[in-house]
Design a protein around this nucleic acid. Structure first.
Lengths: 197, 197
DNA sequence: AGCCAAAATGAATAACTATTCATATTAGCT
DNA sequence: AGCTAATATGAATAGTTATTCATTTTGGCT
């Protein structure tokens, strides 16, 4: 059995267990059982419990960044780019609900108990948004009054909150497609009706 | 000493300790020490550790809801109402950084470990936003294509994420005033420049 | 088959801490 | 001052669980 097989078996198990119980309530033995390895085996691949969470995050968000950047390459229109980003972010939930839940709920508060860990991958992820906004401004399509640094956070926050709806709600009222459309048109055109000249 | 004095002394201490260490890493003895009471005393006022968190939340968000509803009463214009809501939400951080951090980081994941607890106060809070949007739509100012149910989440998410910037960042790049303005104009007018007819 | 290093095991260790409860203190009352 | 109920204390309990490590198993090699 390749080394990476066991590493990823444990990671996958951890995603499941963390999603179900939360990081603090998850026991190493739960993860071990789910991965079908001995408790001690986990410590051959990870330094400690936190390390599982961090390592899991770096791996998975890394994959997501690659995916979404590839999709964005093919498109020029910043509006459409924003659409692609939003839909891709929300679609995570469809195939990988557990992963989405862990990335969202558990990692969010990781800064609290792992002060030294600077989450550079996350920054790389949301910087995709500000890059799109800069582009739109340079092309004269987007309003220059909007700060990309603030807007990236606002847009990410909005998408993230929409995800939470699915993660926590058992009976979602909207489809992912609908939500992506709504959020994008909210951010692109705003609430206000265009004023009539 | 009035009963409520000790109750609120413990609550205030819990806010501090939860903000600093996070719910799971906070020890009852930490809270007791901060509140200058014995460990056992806490159990005269709260059923258990979770109960401290829930009770704290219900009390504090209740106060916030009252405050912001009072402010909104005096205003008719939905755009200005949104401004008021946004600024009020972000201003929480100035005076009560610890509280903001606990409400945001700790309570967020409470659903995970307290399945039975339905967070009705939180729903009441974000429904303030959808009420404003409905009003704007009825008045013909806001676009009817936007679903208030989605927009309320998106707007709350955006504000919440902006809060997180302050909570986690030691050196904020923008003032609260600037941020509230940016977020509101983003949501009201959108990224796109008005098209020229 | 026999050898050996790498990988895996899981019982034991070594804290850690929420909660309890027997005891002590306080405060209101006569 | 003396009494009593309410309030407060904090040491002891009881249970939890991350991590270690002596031992076993595996798999590649000759």
């Amino acid at each position: 059995m390749r080394v990476s097989d066991k590493h990823s078996k444990i990671t996958q198990a951890a995603v499941k267990v963390f999603a179900k119980k939360g990081f603090f309530n998850a026991r190493i033995s739960d993860i071990a059982k789910e991965a079908k390895v001995a408790d001690g085996t986990i410590y051959l691949y990870f330094n400690n419990k936190y390390d599982i969470l961090i390592s899991l995050f770096e791996d998975e968000i890394g994959k997501i960044i690659l995916q979404v950047k590839l999709l964005l390459e093919k498109e020029d229109d910043p509006c459409k780019k924003l659409h692609i980003f939003a839909k891709h972010h929300l679609l995570l939930l469809e195939g990988k609900k557990d992963l989405a839940e862990v990335l969202q709920m558990e990692l969010r508060q990781s800064n609290k108990f792992m002060k030294e860990y600077r989450n550079t991958k996350f920054i790389e992820y949301i910087d995709i948004i500000s890059t799109i906004i800069h582009q739109g401004q340079d092309m004269g399509i987007f309003n220059r009054d909007i700060s990309p640094g603030i807007a990236k956070r606002a847009i990410f926050g909005a998408l993230d909150e929409m995800s939470r709806l699915w993660v926590l709600d058992d009976d979602p009222h909207y489809t992912i497609e609908q939500t992506a459309n709504q959020v994008c048109s909210l951010f692109l055109s705003g609430l206000k009706k265009p004023s009539i000249h």
